[in-house]
Design a protein around this nucleic acid. Structure first.
Lengths: 353, 353
DNA sequence: ACGTATAGTCGAAGCGCTTCGACGGCACGT
DNA sequence: ACGTGCCGTCGAAGCGCTTCGACTATACGT
């Protein structure tokens, strides 16, 4: 008892096979009357078009691939939301989303996958500033779109977090709270040098935002561990005791900072304000106090990526879609008014006795 | 300049189309010599078999679906690892993984998807104790496997976290640290009643482990918020002041507990030990102190789920595979030796003045 | 020597669909 | 009245592959 075919539907509706196809896809006009007969036959049989056959004949599989780095140890709730957002958007538009976990540099693997003609297009996640995968896709001529973007993206479609704007928002919020000495805590220098977009763009955004506000930008790279966070923070406060607020890209290091602050006897947000950049609620709510954060609209980005790609696949005019989404500020408990530095210094002196 | 077809390979190697197919799949013997010629032709042309055509002809698409609840607000790093683990395993075995985000109860939607004959089998995530999706899949006769399992799973294949064992391990660890009064913090009663497997099984495991160790099991349901965690903890300590350790299934509530403990002047782990059950490193490392946790082998579970399913698809003997994976204990800073309760009582008295 | 199995290959018939060309019919304009 | 054009439908030709039956050549047992 296998699935009904279009042929069976046609027989039951007393029409030719092709007429059923036209009725289904609207490719050619079909009279109201026959269309009704066909619909009825379809629902009586519980007919669903065979996806593979349709794809083979039409050369459009209605499948798109989501390309993301394999074994992403640094991934969390944010990335999961990209994926689910993308999958839902695809489903809503009648597409299937397949997952292609591939090493960023395993370009030949990607090429093999693409050559199987399984997918109509590719959505690339975690795009680096210079990204071989993008170069390959361009060269092969596969339609693609990105979540993130390389440094030269002027001629490509993408949806990305607006890191510059996000950093500006963080700085603006802290300035509004009265802070005048704000430091920026980045990921490691290695990641930055490797062209990790979020790291590079947020750093640039911070630099710019600080100067625009008339502040002296202070930045630190930091490994993605609590210990590194402690160390970098100690060094930072040594070098710049006047710092009262921190904007951090680095969640794990942030925990270290909070620890270091605590061991100095500093309270957050009373003695130090922290704003966490690009943090999911899931993570920001785990600390004490919970982190005031700029939360990415991850699901929305996934959705946008898919929409952009499908737009490209279905329209002929093939327009460029480039969308930057800022993060949303969620005020929790880690940022407050600028503290009295003198008082703070006393605390530190006391705790280091 | 479209992709080369098998026909072109055949021509170039001076053999029949079917011979190429045999050489590729090993369906029938092909002489060493011709096989080499064919291989060469394939690599010269950069041939990759057309996935859709292959699927249509063979009735095996080599695509499997991953079914997971739409808009999973409670999802995090653990679930992402299921997905990536599954995707990698599928890829390693020559399969593609498509994502089907569907409401748990939207069974007709699932039926439509299955009828498209796009996938050879389905891997179901987040299985409830009683799950309509499973019933549907069984009834339609689609091969499937699960991450998680319904209450009556004796005749189905699955891979699941061993919640009972995980809870036993947590209890054992706390007992070993000298704790004799251990409380269990669950998710909400609603989730429990809805047949949320982790909640139900961990609760059972705790009950059993506590009794086996000669302890009186103390359990609490708790909403998934820090505030609920605070309230439930206060009530718990009121009712059972002798409790020195907590095993928690509920990460968000755990934060509330830590907060409540801190406001009593209690230090963790000195005055209260906490072990977090089924927590990813990502989350467990955000608190101060970081949480000693039982971490699920999520990627491994995803992999197992896929392997199980593919085994079912490719073998004829269709054997049952049922795997339970315990979580691994990762010792961080939230659990320590059983405290001096008298001292703790003093702290509490002092802070409530 | 003979039948019989097996290796190695070919051609052709689909898999279930889309799409092209063709064709009859009816509505137009003139 | 007659072309012209579009509506609505049909049949057939693929899409790129797997698989079946058939065929030849070689190896085997007796």
């Amino acid at each position: 008892m296998s699935a009904p075919t279009m042929q069976e539907v046609a027989k039951r509706a007393n029409v030719a096979l092709s007429t059923v196809s036209y009725a289904l896809n609207g490719t050619r006009p079909v009279s109201e009357e026959t269309r009704l007969r066909i619909w009825q036959a379809m629902s009586e049989l519980g007919y669903q078009p065979h996806a593979l056959a349709r794809g083979l004949a039409s050369k459009r599989s209605h499948i798109i691939a989501l390309l993301f780095p394999a074994l992403p140890r640094g991934f969390g709730a944010t990335e999961l939301e990209f994926v689910t957002g993308a999958a839902e958007a695809a489903q809503g538009r009648g597409y299937h989303l397949v997952l292609w976990p591939t090493e960023i540099h395993a370009v030949s693997e990607l090429q093999q996958l693409v050559r199987q003609s399984l997918v109509d297009g590719v959505l690339v996640m975690e795009v680096r500033l210079r990204d071989e995968r993008i170069e390959l896709l361009q060269q092969i001529g596969v339609p693609f779109s990105m979540i993130g973007r390389p440094s030269t993206a002027s001629d490509m479609s993408f949806a990305d977090i607006d890191f510059e704007q996000t950093t500006r928002d963080a700085v603006a919020y802290l300035v509004q709270l009265g802070h005048r000495q704000i430091a920026f805590l980045n990921h490691s220098e290695e990641l930055f040098d490797a062209g990790y977009g979020p790291s590079v763009r947020a750093a640039a955004g911070f630099e710019q935002a600080a100067r625009a506000a008339g502040l002296t930008p202070i930045s630190r790279f930091c490994g993605d561990t609590a210990l590194a966070g402690q160390e970098v923070f100690e060094e930072l406060i040594q070098a710049h005791p006047e710092v009262t607020a921190l904007a951090s890209m680095n969640e794990r290091a942030t925990v270290g900072v909070m620890q270091a602050a605590a061991s100095r006897g500093w309270k957050i947000p009373d003695d130090l304000s922290i704003v966490s950049l690009v943090s999911s609620a899931r993570v920001a709510e785990m600390t004490l106090p919970p982190l005031t954060a700029l939360t990415p609209q991850s699901a929305e980005l996934g959705r946008l990526g898919v929409e952009t790609l499908i737009g490209q696949l279905e329209e002929d005019h093939n327009e460029l879609v480039q969308r930057l989404l800022p993060c949303r500020l969620v005020i929790r408990g880690s940022a407050g008014p600028s503290p009295d530095i003198a008082r703070r210094a006393l605390l530190t002196a006391a705790s280091t006795d």
